[in-house]
Amino acid sequence: MANPTQHYVGIPPVIDPAGVEESSSRINRIMTALARDTGGGTYYDLTEAGFNYVDDRCMEYFSELFYLNRRREATKAGLNAFSQTTNAILAASGASTLSMAAVTQAFGLASNLTDIAAGTYLYQLPPATTLTFVRKLQGAYREAVSAKAGQINTPTTSYHLIQDYLALCLPPVIEAKLVEHVSDAAATPVRGGSVSNIEIDVRTNSALPRKPEIIPDVRQRAKAVVQPETVQPYALGNYEPRLSRERIRRIQRSLCVSPVDGIISGGTRSAIDAFFQGVQKGASGRTYPSVSLGGLQGVHEDKLIQAEQEVGGTCIPSRDKGPYEIGLLVK
């Protein structure tokens, strides 16, 4: 295992096999747990379940920050009040000015140490304000993921999106986004009004040319997932999935297959096998693999193109009889 201090100087220059195995096992456990949560849904559903888990942890984090901030303010108020009371007692008892100054400095130091301790965990803005900003970031991220839900089709893609969503609630990312937001701010005068009532509008530079868009709330319901169409839903082997529907329609038209739907299935495969039986019986004599058993392959294409040329693109049953008879004519 790497030395913990190494994280402060960067990641290791080489990939550790043991670390990869540990990470892979951890990711697998996470994805399996999220899959149980969704009841076997799509990878987009699994990704949303991961987002929901991150939302819960993020809310817990900001809740802790909120109460820590309140405790800091209460502690400082108590120290200041106690300091004033102590000075009043010293003044009434005739204590020296030096003693009173020392007490004041002591309580001032305690108040500063309270700020330093709390500042280790808090942002410069109040936690409630920062949470609102983070929720807007999360809402925009969810909307972007929802628009591309059909492309989330592997567990690795799903995990990557969940990790990026988690990063939006990490202190370094929040601080960077806040700094970026403030540094990109621009001020423009508001037209109209009198000289005694001049107003300034502040917004980001990117929003100036158009009306600012309202980012949806993070809890907005995601858009329905539209599954991508499978070109060949009954494909066999490695070659058939790459065939377009137009290519299958041309084969179907040339071999008297009905309907001409562009989908290779049982009827189309039987017609192609009958055609190649005719090819073997005819002038060719060559044996071709069964399309019904192993699927259409590249080795079949040359003769199928010849069949298309033989019938002029479209088979006419009264003239060409059927796929077997067409195969007899192919040289």
Rank of each mutant, 00 (worst) to 15 (best):
K303R: 11
G298K: 03
D273W: 01
Q105S: 14
L34V: 02
N205H: 04
L208P: 09
Y234D: 11
D261F: 05
V225Q: 07
G78Q: 11
A77H: 11
A167P: 00
H300G: 00
Q151V: 07
G285S: 09
A274M: 12
Y165M: 06
V330R: 02
T85G: 12
Y159L: 04
E229Q: 12
E143K: 14
V202H: 02
F51A: 02
P126K: 13
D45S: 13
G285P: 01
A102D: 06
G278C: 06
G327S: 03
L125H: 08
R242A: 13
P241L: 10
E199G: 05
K321R: 13
G267M: 03
N69M: 06
P317A: 14
K136P: 00
C169S: 15
E180S: 14
E213T: 10
R219Y: 04
L122T: 04
T287V: 14
P259R: 10
Y141W: 07
S258D: 11
T85Y: 09
K321S: 01
P209C: 07
K331Y: 11
D16E: 14
L98T: 15
A147F: 07
A95P: 01
H160P: 00
S292L: 10
T120L: 15
A77L: 10
S254T: 12
T32H: 05
I15T: 15
L113M: 13
D302V: 04
R191F: 14
A88R: 15
Y44E: 03
E60K: 12
D184G: 09
A222Y: 04
G139Q: 09
Q163G: 01
E325H: 13
E60V: 11
I30F: 08
A224V: 12
Q124N: 15
M100T: 11
